[in-house]
Design a protein around this nucleic acid. Structure first.
Lengths: 139, 139
DNA sequence: GTGATTGCAAATCTTTTGCACTAAA
DNA sequence: TTTAGTGCAAAAGATTTGCAATCAC
């Protein structure tokens, strides 16, 4: 389970990939990982940080999100042409995407089964399979 | 099959959704629909149009792609945070996406089977299921 | 004619970058 | 110290928009 990720774990992971645990990174990590799984955009995380009196620039938020993603602490989800979401749940799973609201919900990995895949194109190998169930608010 | 779509079909579909068959729309439709299924970005289509001596602005290409999508002639595929692809194949199917090159390949609808879905979030209904198989060029 | 469509340039939005300043080790 | 990290403002890309000119009906 991802919801329970002790803070020191993040610190260790940062060290493991050679990222210094700076004030900003630790504060963002705290916002991201304390309190269950989240799907968040850079803008929203930035606003949240400011609200929590963490002085951090939007550029640093972007940098940090990408560094965390590279470090395997986050996963980037592409569902919307206009912005990127980052998911604190890095385990295998898929998503519901509500087009009207931009809301993203997890689907546990074992609740969708994708049949055996056809062979990947010549010279490539499968990195990841994303299933996005696009839903609309029904009237 | 989509590859064989008589030109008049497009004309009819344009009329059906109240789009006037203008010089630009007809020319873009020709580029898009003559010659099998394509995955194309606005930039690329624009460049192609210019190369074919079709004077059309990039803004009109964007407008047209969206109008065609709304009309059901195209399908927008979101796989890359930085640009949108439009797919001339509007039948049910999925995609291989090669991250390094931006190349997108169709996977016929019957070559991937997604198990029964969990229930959609409260107040929503499923609009479409997208499976994206992300692959990397193996060395 | 007249209302839809187009082109252009400017505007917008998200994300990235360059560089001087600051902080971790 | 020494090197990584940060903030800011500017730049970059993709896409959209406002509006006068143009075209389909």
């Amino acid at each position: 389970m991802n919801a329970v990720r002790p803070f020191s774990h993040v610190l260790d992971q940062l060290r493991a990939v050679g990222l210094r645990p700076t004030r900003q990174r630790l504060a963002l990590a705290k916002l991201l990982f304390e309190g269950g799984n989240r799907h968040i955009t850079a803008e929203v995380l930035h606003a949240e940080a400011l609200r929590a009196n963490i002085r951090v620039s939007l550029a640093t938020v972007y940098n940090t999100l990408h560094q965390f993603t590279t470090a395997g602490l986050l996963r980037e989800i592409i569902v919307d042409a206009s912005r990127s979401y980052f998911d604190t749940n890095t385990s295998e799973h898929h998503h519901f995407f509500v087009e009207e609201t931009g809301r993203l919900d997890d689907i546990p990995g074992d609740q969708i089964i994708v049949s055996e895949l056809p062979e990947a194109p010549e010279g490539t190998s499968v990195k990841r399979v994303d299933v996005i169930v696009r839903v609309t608010e029904s009237p």
